[in-house]
C-alpha cells in the first residue's frame, strides 16, 4: 500500500494563539487504511484534519497529499477533490434545498458535464443509503441522515481520502451508528482511505490504526488493541478507554490473568471465561 497523505515536521499556530496547535508532527497515512484520531479538546485533532485538504497550511514543514504540496495554490482544486472533508455540524455544510442538488454541488464546482454529475450524485447517494430520499428537503431529515448526505456530498467529488472531523459529535446514538457503519463500509468495501477524528473511544475500535494526539504531537500510534491496553498512559493523556478494556483492566488489578487487548464484547467475554477456567 502506498502513502497517500504525508506530514513532514508540520508546525502550525493560529494567529491569535501563543501556543502551537501542531508541534512538529510527522505522519503517513496509507492508501485504503482506516485511521482513527483521538485526543482531548485542544490537542490539535481538528487542526490536523483541516491540514489534510489545505484549508489550513503549515506555518513550518509541509503536507503532501498524493504528491501535491498543500501550500501549492495552483493545484488547490486538484488537492481538494482528492480529499473529502466532513464536519461536525451537518446543518452548516448542506448548501441546497434538495438532497440531490446538495450532493451535486461539488461536481458542479468541478465543471463536470451534466450526465457525469447525475451519475456521480446517484452513485454517492446509493453508497450512503440515501438514494430513496434524494428529493427530500435536507432540514426535514434526521441528524444521521443529514450527515450521510454530507458524506455523499464529498464522495461525489470522487476523493481518494475521506476525512471526518468529529462527524458524530452532534448526533444521537442512532445517528452515530448510521454514520459509523457507512464510513466503515466505505473503507472495507470501496477501499476508501478513511481518517476519522473523534472523541468517542468506541468509534476507534474498528480502525486499523489509532493515533492519540496530545499538545500538537502524536503521543501514541498503533492498533486500537495496542493503544487501549496502555490504560495508565491513556488516563495520563486525559482520555478514557473502552468499557471492555476498563473491565479487563480492573480484573487484572484484582489479580485475574486476562489480556488487555480484547476490544469487542465477544472477545472480552471469551477472554474472561478462559481466565476463569484456568
Amino acid at each position: 500500500m502506498s502513502t497517500v497523505i504525508q506530514f513532514e515536521n508540520v508546525h502550525f499556530k493560529y494567529p491569535e494563539d501563543t501556543r502551537e496547535s501542531l508541534n512538529g508532527l510527522n505522519l503517513e497515512i496509507r492508501e485504503g487504511s482506516f485511521t482513527a484520531v483521538l485526543g482531548r479538546n485542544g490537542s490539535g485533532k481538528s487542526t490536523l484534519a483541516k491540514h489534510m485538504n489545505g484549508i489550513l497550511v503549515p506555518t513550518e514543514g509541509r503536507v503532501l497529499v498524493a504528491g501535491i504540496d498543500t501550500a501549492d495554490e495552483d493545484r488547490l482544486l486538484d488537492l481538494r477533490r482528492q480529499v473529502g472533508l466532513v464536519f461536525q455540524n451537518p446543518d452548516n455544510q448542506i448548501v441546497a434545498n434538495v438532497v440531490e442538488d446538495d450532493v451535486a454541488f461539488a461536481p458542479e464546482n468541478l465543471g463536470l458535464p451534466p450526465a457525469e454529475i447525475r451519475r456521480r450524485v446517484d452513485g454517492a447517494l446509493q453508497l450512503v443509503g440515501m438514494y430513496e430520499l434524494r428529493l427530500h428537503a435536507p432540514h426535514l431529515l434526521s441528524g444521521g441522515q443529514k450527515q450521510r448526505v454530507a458524506i455523499a456530498g464529498v464522495l461525489a467529488m470522487g476523493p481518494r481520502v475521506l476525512v471526518l472531523d468529529e462527524p458524530t459529535a452532534m448526533l444521537d446514538p442512532q445517528g452515530r451508528r448510521e454514520v459509523l457503519t457507512t464510513v466503515t463500509r466505505l473503507c472495507r468495501e470501496q477501499g476508501m482511505t478513511v481518517v476519522l477524528v473523534t472523541h468517542h473511544m468506541d468509534e476507534c475500535v474498528g480502525a486499523d490504526r489509532l493515533l492519540v494526539l496530545d499538545r500538537g504531537q502524536i503521543a501514541l500510534d498503533g492498533t486500537p488493541a495496542e493503544i487501549f491496553s496502555q490504560v495508565e498512559r491513556m488516563r495520563a493523556l486525559g482520555l478514557d478507554v473502552p468499557e471492555t478494556t476498563q473491565l479487563l483492566y480492573e480484573l487484572r488489578q484484582e489479580g485475574l490473568d486476562v489480556p488487555l487487548d480484547a476490544l469487542d464484547v465477544d472477545s472480552c467475554a471469551g477472554a474472561i471465561a478462559a481466565a476463569l477456567k484456568r
Binding site: N53, I55, L76, L77, R80, R81, G84, L85, E100, D101, A104, F105, A106, P107, E108, N109, L110, G111, L112, P113, P114, I117, R118, V121, G153, V154, M157
Partner: peptide, 15 residues
C-alpha cells in the same frame, strides 16, 4: 471551499 467551490467560473449544472 472543501467541496471545491471557487466562485461561478467554470461551474456546470446537473439540471
Amino acid at each position: 471551499e472543501s467541496r471545491c467551490y471557487h466562485g461561478g467560473e467554470g461551474r456546470s449544472r446537473m439540471k
